[in-house]
Structure formats: structure tokens, C-alpha cells
Amino acid sequence: MTGYEEVILDHWRHPRHKGRLPDPTGSAIEANPLCGDVVRLEVRVEGGTIADARFSGEGCAISQAAASLLTELIVGKPVAEVEKMKDEDLLSALGGVVRTRLSCALLPLRALRKALASGAQRTSPPGEV
């Protein structure tokens, strides 16, 4: 069966950075009311860099795998770079997502953008993220 690339199945079965951060500088929850997907993304920003990130939540394989992969992509990166991340960047890192499920795949990215905007150590003015 296709549709679920190896990377999605891998992150779904073996989630990275799953759990809660004891000391987040930014945190946000995004939910998809249509299917009940929920993703909480927490980040700790230190000196303009994402020092650590965690996700928690529940839902479909695509939303949870995307959240896991996203945390891998951002930890250790400068906030300024992460803020420039586009939807397509995450989708291609996932190996492509069928068009009926884009909202699931992008849920964690929406949470990340909110989490960064909520954080004290913002590097860009609100509204730009």
C-alpha cells in the first residue's frame, strides 16, 4: 500500500521528542475539529536558537508523524530560519502527503508558528509569523 511513505510510518511508530518540556518559552495547541487531531507543540528558545522542542497530542498517523518530524527539523536551528519554514518544506520532508490530508500534516506547523509567536524571545513582530 502506498500513501504513507516510510518516513511517516517510521515517525508514527517511533515518535521523536514526544512529551512535555518542563521549561518551555513558547507553547501552543492546535486542533482539527473535523477529525479530532490535537497537537501541542512546546519550544525552548535560547539565544535565538531552538534549544529543545516537544510535541504531545493524539490523532491520525499523519498529524502525529508530522509533529514528530517537525521537532527533529527545528531543534538546534535559529528561530529566524524556522520562522521562514514553508508548508511545502514540511510536506516534502514527509515524502509527500495526499491532498485530502494536508490539514492533518500541517497541524503541527500551525502549532509551531503559534508557539513561537507566544514565546517571550520572539525574533519577529507578531503577525509576521
Partner: peptide, 14 residues
């Protein structure tokens, strides 16, 4: 343990 949307997407591939 599997979200219904995942089931539907996999079946759609068939």
C-alpha cells in the same frame, strides 16, 4: 489504535 482518517486514506489508495 488507528485513526479513521488513516484507514480511509489507505483504502483510497486501493
Amino acid at each position: 489504535g488507528i485513526h479513521p482518517h488513516d484507514v480511509a486514506t489507505l483504502l483510497d489508495q486501493e
